[in-house]
């Protein structure tokens, strides 16, 4: 169980990385924390010809408050962000979800943007990004663009990122002063892929629920407030719309069941912590 051969480029600057990606095209992969990519390399599921290590690039190791949002560079590790002072206040949803991302031993190296790039439909960070209405910042030699999270994820490990593009950063709008947030996840064991994960954002007038692990990507939807009797039907519709499937660990019906129950629970919790 050893990786197939590849070249390795330790990129010191963004330009160097972008140039390498431009030249290698589909044969290159960006290496950041490596916590999703290395298992695939070891199992020889992935066999890129070139790995571009972007972790030495200083410009990507920045976390910044920018216009009411948190901008997280591609070099930021999950553990580092978890330890950021004030995270729970600015980004309560992210703060609640990060402990569910793998284990301490993988968060120490795994990056937030790496998880977004990997686009696993059960992953917590893409779910939070979608729930908060965040953005993905892509860059290639041709230029930069910004994609809304909900448009970025297109399926199982599929995104709108073009082959020579890399994620430069993600931005997450800060929690609105009047809003409440809640996150819950059900898996077989602690640290496993979520069978269903729910993230809720509730303010005085609106409620938004994002669900991971059910559809082939994280999906968010505006729903009636928890106090509104219409929520029941809306949740039911939402649960069915995700086209859940059976797998080894859970049935489609179970996933829909969790969307209804867990979904309501996080919406209520978010509404309660707002008050």
């Amino acid at each position: 169980m050893k990786p197939a051969p590849f070249d390795y480029l330790r990129a010191e600057t963004l330009e160097e990385a972008l140039e390498a990606l431009h030249q290698a095209g589909t044969e290159a992969r960006v290496l950041a924390g490596g916590q999703s990519l290395l298992p695939m390399l070891n199992m020889r599921l992935a066999r890129p010809a070139l790995l571009v290590d972007i972790m030495p690039i200083a410009a990507l190791r920045e976390v910044a408050d920018a216009a009411g949002a948190l901008r997280i560079g591609a070099g930021i590790r999950q553990a580092a962000l978890q330890a950021r002072p004030g995270l729970a206040r600015q980004q309560p949803l992210l703060a609640a979800a990060l402990p569910w991302v793998g284990h301490a031993q993988t968060r120490s190296r795994g990056t937030l943007c790496g998880s977004v790039a990997h686009a696993d439909p059960s992953a917590e960070i893409p779910l939070v990004l979608v729930a908060m209405g965040g953005h993905v910042h892509l860059r290639s030699r041709r230029g930069a663009r910004r994609v809304a999270a909900e448009e970025f994820f297109t399926g199982m490990m599929a995104t709108t990122r073009a082959e020579e593009e890399m994620i430069e950063a993600i931005t997450l709008p800060h929690a609105a002063p009047d809003s409440g947030h809640a996150f819950r996840e059900v898996g077989r064991r602690h640290g496993d892929f979520a069978i269903t994960a729910c993230a809720a954002v509730v303010d005085a007038r609106s409620a938004r629920l994002a669900v991971g692990g059910v559809a082939d990507r994280p999906v968010a939807r505006a729903l009636p407030l928890p106090s509104d009797p219409a929520l029941e039907d809306a949740l039911e519709q939402f649960a069915w719309s995700l086209e859940a499937r059976d797998d080894l660990h859970a049935t489609a019906a179970y996933r829909r069941h969790l969307v209804r129950r867990l979904g309501r629970a996080v919406l209520e919790e978010a509404a309660a912590c707002r008050a």
Binding site: L31, G34, L38, D53, A79, A104, S108
Partner: peptide, 25 residues
């Protein structure tokens, strides 16, 4: 594949899976 934890070492003070890390990194 990063699940069992037997290979955990400390890299710059933080615990990490040696099997999910390339030596050249």
């Amino acid at each position: 594949h990063g699940v069992c934890g037997a290979c955990t070492v400390q890299i710059d003070g933080a615990p990490a899976r040696a099997c999910l890390t390339l030596a050249v990194q």
